[in-house]
């Protein structure tokens, strides 16, 4: 323990505090996982038995499966486009020095700070004007707007570790710009690109407000869940919650592992040099 904390509160206090935070964060999620396996129709702690019936019900529910498919399609396309845009923006910011660079950067990172309701409503108005409201393409376009800044942020972090001279050095050794980009910049940035893909996928997969405004009858999983909940309390919600949570958590954990491994590698390189 650092010396300045030595005579402060006992360590047990900090551990208890941390435990409380984690319990408050994860208890609702854990309860969803627990109740998804309950044999009862209504969630209660005196569970009468263990059952996978709700899983069977969800996996045979055509509307839910369609929503899942919509979600996967939207998230897949969103991740592809947002990552490409995010990398391109991060690269431009890394490679070039131009007038108004800071302003461009701020503008590019702005969308996630706009309230989703406003963004969703504005998107709906715009999409209906150009006649694509209510299509999955509209949802993808809207999701790209909020997801691309995340991709850009992740790629920028990685590019910041790359000496800007390297790309020039490659050109100096005879590599035309596309080769220098492909041989020097991309290999270095691949882990970040992968992480950006997973994170933007997760962002889109979880997003409710914009999907609800712009998706129309094409429901994604979060929209379908909320729609179901408005009608009745259905135990299949717990199943969907558990499945969604697992998908998102897996994606984020993989992204985290990729990012941690790359920075760990960079650190050990610095030590030896």
């Amino acid at each position: 323990m650092p010396p300045h904390l030595k005579h402060a509160l006992p360590i047990a206090f900090w551990v208890a505090g941390l435990a409380l935070v984690f319990i408050l964060l994860y208890a609702p999620i854990l309860s969803a996982v627990l109740f998804s396996f309950s044999a009862d129709r209504f969630p209660s702690l005196s569970m009468s038995g263990f059952s996978t019936q709700w899983y069977a019900q969800v996996l045979t529910d055509r509307a839910m499966l369609e929503a899942l498919w919509n979600s996967l399609t939207v998230a897949g396309f969103t991740a592809l486009i947002a990552t490409a845009l995010g990398f391109a923006a991060a690269y431009a910011d890394y490679r070039f020095r131009f007038f108004g660079q800071k302003a461009v950067l701020a503008l590019a990172l702005l969308p996630p700070t706009v309230p989703l309701v406003i963004l969703g409503l504005a998107m709906l108005a715009f999409f209906s004007r150009i006649g694509i409201a209510g299509t999955l393409a509209a949802v993808v376009a809207a999701h790209v707007v909020i997801a691309a800044p995340f991709a850009m942020a992740v790629c920028r972090l990685r590019l910041a570790q790359l000496d800007r001279t390297l790309e020039t050095a490659a050109q100096n050794l005879g590599a035309p710009p596309h080769s220098a980009l492909g041989r020097i910049v991309l290999p270095h940035t691949v882990p970040a690109i992968l992480a950006a893909f997973l994170i933007t996928f997760a962002v889109s997969f979880d997003e409710y407000v914009i999907s609800w405004f712009t998706g129309g009858l094409n429901q994604t999983i979060p929209v379908a869940v909320l729609t179901t909940l408005q009608g009745q309390v259905d135990p299949t919600i717990h199943v969907i919650g558990t499945l969604s949570f697992t998908v998102t958590l897996t994606l984020v954990l993989i992204a985290l592992a990729v990012v941690l491994r790359q920075s760990g590698g960079a650190m050990s390189k610095e030590e030896t040099s």
Binding site: D163, T165, L166, T168, A169, N172, P176, P187, H188
Partner: peptide, 20 residues
Amino acid sequence: LPVWERETPMVWQSLALFPF
């Protein structure tokens, strides 16, 4: 000529070796 066609290789102050 552009950089990559000049045949004037350079030894850089930072060396600029490709790290990976």
